[in-house]
């Protein structure tokens, strides 16, 4: 990677078809802007617990369906029995899924993860680089109306009764679905790792004259350059 600062990023735009091919994934660089056509599925802790902690049989052959997942639960309404309409979609914070995400990638062929906040640089090197996956950050993070507009229809919903609307596995047909920012490419580079080096410079200076509080707290991070997870 030649870029060292976020101001050097190319921010190239891509429109990709799902499942996204290895070749297309390899072309993505951190800071690029991605939109998707095809099929994606949603998943968060409820789905992961069921799949990997309870080892329930998947309700559908995920690998045959798509290699793109989205850490979210959509805002949906049931227009008629079994007929769902998605109004808006936004991501939920992804770093909470470190335990289960490698399993989803290894066992079910997921290679494109859409989420919020990204994962740690170590996690990218251990799993995304190894398996050739990319992490796409939603923008904002609350631009749910734009993402909702990109959802053409609900293809299926699985484990609705068991997990509820918010945690169920939604299979969505999408068109021009985006924009997303490439946060981790198949080389394991992290946009946030690059960005935080730039902002940490400033933070350090702001803290210079401010004493530590009188009362400490157990388990607390004191170095402003550190992250909280």
């Amino acid at each position: 990677m030649s870029e060292k600062n976020t101001s050097d990023l190319l921010m190239d735009e891509h429109l990709l078809e799902t499942s996204v091919s290895r070749e297309a994934l390899d072309k993505l660089r951190i800071g690029d802007i991605v939109r998707l056509n095809g099929v994606i599925f949603t998943g968060r802790i409820g789905l992961y617990k069921k799949l990997f902690d309870e080892e329930a049989e998947p309700p559908v052959d995920i690998a045959a369906l798509t290699n793109v997942t989205f850490h979210c639960s959509p805002a949906v309404g049931e227009k008629a029995p079994g007929e769902w309409e998605v109004s808006a979609v936004t991501a939920t914070a992804s770093f909470r899924f470190e335990k289960h995400l490698p399993l989803l990638m290894e066992r079910h062929g997921v290679r494109c993860v859409i989420g919020k906040g990204g994962m740690s640089p170590e996690f990218y090197r251990d799993h995304f680089k190894r398996l050739g996956g990319v992490f796409l950050n939603t923008v904002g993070y609350g631009i749910g109306a734009q993402y909702g507009r990109g959802v053409q229809r609900v293809e299926a919903v699985h484990w609705l009764k068991e997990l509820g609307i918010a945690q169920a596995m939604w299979v969505l047909r999408v068109k021009n679905f985006g924009p997303f920012l490439v946060e981790c490419d198949t080389e394991g580079n992290s946009l946030y790792e690059m960005a935080m080096k730039e902002t940490n410079e400033n933070l350090k200076g702001l803290y210079a004259d401010l004493p530590l509080p009188t009362l400490k707290r157990m388990g607390e991070v004191h170095n402003p350059e550190d992250e909280v997870f």
């Binding site: 979210c72 639960s73 959509p74 805002a75 109004s87 808006a88 979609v89 936004t90 939920t92 609350g142 631009i143 749910g144 109306a145 734009q146 993402y147 909702g148 507009r149």
Partner: peptide
């Protein structure tokens, strides 16, 4: 977009 489509601007409502 939320105004035009009359859809919630964030899915986490």
């Amino acid at each position: 977009v939320a105004d035009e489509d009359l859809r919630p601007m964030c899915a986490d409502t």
